[in-house]
């Protein structure tokens, strides 16, 4: 089944996790879709590297967090927060590629 992430997620956000990491949270509306997405392993390193144009070693980890029906992806920042060339000191506007995402589950 092809489904838009924005249809099944309640929250999609990005933020710094310290000055050197960027973390993406996807919090799902329903447990069963969350579990289906987890089971299908569709939010994986390959997907993230494609969406963000980074190499796999920049994807630090991907966690499924059941108590919050959430999947968390953490990336190494290409430029540390506030260093020359940075575009988003708080890392709060790096979630947009996830909004256009369609998943097969």
């Amino acid at each position: 089944m092809r489904i838009r992430l924005t249809d099944i997620a309640e929250v999609i956000r990005s933020k710094n996790a310290g000055p050197y990491q960027l973390t993406l949270d996807i919090i799902f509306k329903e447990s069963d879709t969350f579990l289906k997405v987890c089971k299908a392993k569709v939010i994986n390193k390959k997907l993230i590297t494609g969406l963000y144009g980074v190499t796999e070693d920049k994807v630090i980890n991907i966690f499924e967090f059941k108590p919050a029906k959430a999947i968390k992806v953490t990336l190494a920042r290409t430029i540390p927060s506030g260093s020359l060339g940075d575009t988003d000191v708080y890392g709060a506007q790096q979630h947009a590629p996830l909004l256009a995402l369609e998943l097969y589950i």
Partner: peptide, 17 residues
């Protein structure tokens, strides 16, 4: 709510556990 509190545990962290 359990969700709002659990979701906050994720906030600005790289590992929720």
């Amino acid at each position: 709510t359990t969700l709002s509190v659990a979701a906050h545990t994720l906030y600005e962290k790289n590992n929720p556990y």
